[in-house]
Amino acid sequence: MESKYNLKSPAVKRLMKEAAELRDPTEHYHAQPLEDNLFEWHFSVRGPPDSDFDGGVYHGRIVLPPEYPMKPPSIILLTPNGRFEVGKKICLSISGHHPETWQPSWSIRTALIAIIGFMPTKGEGAIGSLDYTPEERRALAKKSQDFCCEACGSCMRTALQALSPDSDLRPADPQAHRLAQQINFKAESSSDSAGASAASSQAEQHSTSGSTADDRDSQDSTLAEQSGSTSLAPQTSAEGPSSVAPSPRQRRTQNQTQSPRYPAFTASPVAQQPPQDTGHTGSVVLIFLLTLALAALIFRRIYLANEYKFDYEL
């Protein structure tokens, strides 16, 4: 491979280094470039324990842009998993409204940890995301072990180092979990909705943990502490550095307690936590209201026309 690439290219240099760094499978992740293409990698990640993905090992592709590491990698899952669509490009971008905040000092390892952490979070209807039931996900987790990749030849049963009984079950987990809350896996979509606007703030809560500030052993972990995106006004989500982002479960309950009746009118960019679960309800309410508005306009039109006619007849 060495001879094929311009070793002076920063991306090549960096990817060679990352390939060496990730050469040996860990218990939780492994990634290597394809033999004939340094800019396409295949990875395997272990589903996080204590989740519906427990016992699953998932395989996928990572596509690196020529500008890497100045631009973020894209990720494509190849194993059915019930969380991400298979074969769809999800590009690693840090928070939907701050796509530019990918940091060149992050790495493929950062991305792998993010994928693991991101799996148990909700898909929430985002493009490229799936919200399969826990049963379906568990079935897929079991099945995932049988997957063998034709392109890179790795089989999921042997792709990762076996979990030993005394190994830490969740080494990357708290870190990966926090990391995932900051990262959006953004589908590369061709659909271009005109109604969308940057004003719809992602408004994720700050997830910070000052206590771990001192013992971080890698930049990866610091990523986890990056505050969520508050694109409109960072101040509005200033819960202070002591606040901790809620787990998906917490979020769910939080959202359930929120009145779902007229979410369209309660949402504001300042909202700390937009009612993500009610997104669907919101659309329905919106459609309903728009239909009403249209009906009212048509009715008015007919009424005016009639009135005109009446006048004429009089």
Binding site: G96, E100, I127, D192, A199, A267, S268, G279, L286, L290
Partner: peptide, 30 residues
């Protein structure tokens, strides 16, 4: 105007879906 307002007030709801498409648009413009 009403429709506009509705659009605006619903942005919070739609973000799960729309922020993705809008990101693409923003990125392309950038």
């Amino acid at each position: 105007k009403m429709a506009d307002e509705l659009q605006e007030s619903s942005q919070g709801e739609m973000e799960g879906v729309n922020c993705l498409a809008s990101d693409e648009a923003i990125l392309a413009q950038q």
